Amino acid sequence: MQEKTSPGTDPSDSGAKGNGDGTAEQAPVRPVIPAAAAKRANASVIGMIVALVVSIAAFLPIILMNPLPKSDGFRPDIDVSAVARNASDVAGFTPATPDTGNTFTSNYARWESGSGSGVPTWEVGYLTPNESFIGLVQTRQPNPTWLVQQTKSAPVTGTRTAGGQEWVLRDTGKGEKSMVLNYRGTTVVLTGSAQLDEFAELGAAVVKSMEANPAVTVSPSASPARKVSPWLPT
């Protein structure tokens, strides 16, 4: 006779499970944060948030009372007349300093000795009211190659009157254009992507400045060559 026993739970199995090979696996232990520690952690986070809000509230009125200035970008303050006075001693002529009031802004003015091109030049860059650019180049020693380089090989497309003088208009057809004037012993080239009315406005100011300065004396031997040069306006 065998005594039958009903299956029961083995107390030794509490907290462990067998994996089939006789070894027991421990149940994962979940850390429990005491209520007091959790309360302290929450209090720290809330304190940081409150401090941040207080800091922003303290500095916000100062920022609002001192708004940042509106700016269209960096615009250097170039004293074109002062640079021209320094350049006149080596230029052999008085560089043009067109007065455009507050409509045009100069972003550079310099004298180039012409070490690379062989043509010394007076150069000024202008930003127009429409945020376009026109570069002014003036020299007393132009040549055909130099003019082609300055006008980006643009063909002659007509003339444009500015300041009572007739300028030769050269247009690349790609937005870049040039106006060329041979006047009072020097040659002036205006080149850029601006509109023709802005070219005309700057050109008129250039002519006015040139007429206020002494004319450059051209030697008799150089005069005939200038008269027959096909690349210069007459």
Rank of each mutant, 00 (worst) to 15 (best):
K4Q: 08
P233D: 07
S88M: 07
S14N: 04
L202N: 06
T234P: 12
T23E: 12
S223F: 09
W111Q: 03
D13H: 06
T103Y: 11
T103P: 04
Y126V: 00
L196A: 12
G173P: 03
V188L: 13
L127R: 04
E112H: 10
W167H: 04
Q195L: 08
I78T: 07
N130P: 00
S193L: 05
G92H: 01
P28M: 02
T172Q: 02
I46H: 07
S223G: 03
S12I: 07
P155M: 05
P69I: 03
D197M: 09
M1K: 10
E3S: 06
V218Q: 01
P67Y: 00
D99A: 15
I134K: 04
G15P: 07
V207D: 03
D99Q: 15
L232Q: 06
A38I: 00
G73I: 05
S219D: 14
R110N: 05
A154F: 02
K39N: 11
G163W: 09
N102Y: 11
D171H: 06
D77F: 01
V188D: 08
N86L: 10
G164H: 09
V80D: 05
F93A: 00
P67K: 05
P31W: 13
E3R: 06
S113M: 07
W111M: 01
F74D: 09
S221Q: 15
T161P: 08
S223W: 04
V50N: 04
A205D: 11
V54Y: 10
D99S: 15
L64I: 08
I49Q: 09
G47D: 02
T139R: 04
I62H: 14
A162M: 07
P76G: 04
V216Y: 12
F133D: 00
R140M: 11
N213T: 10
I56G: 15
T234G: 12
T187P: 04
P142Q: 08
A154K: 05
G47S: 03
K17H: 03
E211Y: 10
P7V: 04
V189F: 05
A57H: 12
E3Y: 06
R85L: 12
N213R: 11
T159Y: 05
P95F: 05
Q141E: 14
T9C: 02
G22Y: 04
I46N: 08
Q165L: 11
G116T: 13
N102Q: 14
F104M: 12
E131T: 07
V206N: 11
A194P: 01
E201M: 13
S223V: 14
T103G: 11
N42P: 01
